[in-house]
């Protein structure tokens, strides 16, 4: 035991495990209460039930919210990844005037409080342009906050891409467009998929911006927020949360597999993490 301790960093290793428990505590509690046969979210547990999950299917407002959220998440992921591809290629490959400020501005939403993004878009759309709020206004906001993550992921893809491959294709007579399609795209495809999945997950879970910008059709988190006010709805929310978290974990695991595949393709050493 003491040998194991010293090898793995001693008490630091113990601390790391305790810290992981702290990080995962809410996630483990979620399914615990989702399958608990009681309308009160508290211990002791009352027995096993799948009632709350079957209760999910009969709510039209929920089905609507899921559809709205999926539409918003897919569109935002596509837009953010497209913008991220442009920014990452420009940032890694080219030197141009104003590069620092432009790249900096694109990454700003990473540190900006989300309420500021929500409020500022609300001001422009409603107070100044006088346009109605809709799913599109949420998409505009989500694309803005997903783009920095897409850029970070795709930067790594472009950095590990050997430029001589593209040059060789051009020298052999391919056009820039066909070079991109035949050489670049397949090599950075894992990064693109990882970026799509991460952006999709961020948009699907995002609440603060959606709350400000959502129109008549609420997104899933906005719907959940409205249900948190009713104690008798809480077990159903727990069931919904369990599904949402499970879906997020599956998508993140796929994204991580893609990221590693991308590194392997490029023959690079794994340095960990997306950012």
């Amino acid at each position: 035991m003491s040998g194991w301790l010293s090898k793995r960093g001693g008490w630091l290793g113990v601390y790391a495990v305790v810290y992981l428990v702290f990080l995962y505590a809410p996630i483990f509690l979620l399914p615990t209460f989702a399958f608990n046969d009681s309308t009160v979210i508290a211990f002791p547990l009352q027995g096993f039930t799948t009632e709350w999950f079957s209760g999910l299917s009969g709510v039209p407002a929920l089905t609507g919210a899921v559809k709205t959220s999926l539409l918003i998440a897919v569109t935002s992921a596509l837009l953010a990844t497209t913008l991220g591809l442009c920014a990452a290629r420009a940032g890694v490959r080219y030197r141009f005037p104003g590069k620092g400020p432009i790249m900096g501005l694109i990454m700003v939403p990473l540190v900006l409080p989300e309420i500021i993004v929500g409020v500022s878009l609300l001001v422009v759309i409603v107070s100044i342009l006088g346009l109605p709020l809709s799913s599109w206004t949420v998409i505009l906001g989500h694309t803005l906050i997903c783009t920095p993550f897409a850029v970070a992921i795709l930067n790594a893809s472009y950095q590990s891409l050997d430029t001589s491959l593209e040059e060789a294709a051009i020298d052999l007579g391919e056009t820039p467009v066909s070079t991109f399609r035949l050489i670049t795209l397949p090599l950075i495809m894992p990064g693109i998929i990882a970026s799509l999945l991460i952006s999709f997950t961020i948009s699907l879970d995002e609440f603060i911006i959606a709350f400000f910008l959502t129109g008549a059709e609420p997104t899933l988190p906005v719907y959940i927020w409205s249900q948190l006010r009713f104690p008798q709805k809480l077990p159903i929310v727990m069931a919904l949360g369990t599904i949402l978290v499970a879906a997020s974990i599956v998508m993140l695991t796929l994204a991580e597999i893609m990221r590693r595949r991308g590194l392997k393709k490029a023959g690079k050493k794994d340095t960990g993490g997306f950012l």
Binding site: C86, A87, Y94, P97, I102, M103, V108, V117, L144
Partner: peptide
């Protein structure tokens, strides 16, 4: 070339941020 590529995300950030 760099500016042309950076334009879509750059303009998006300028207009919406």
């Amino acid at each position: 070339k760099g500016l042309l590529l950076a334009a879509p995300p750059g303009l998006y950030a300028i207009l919406l941020l």
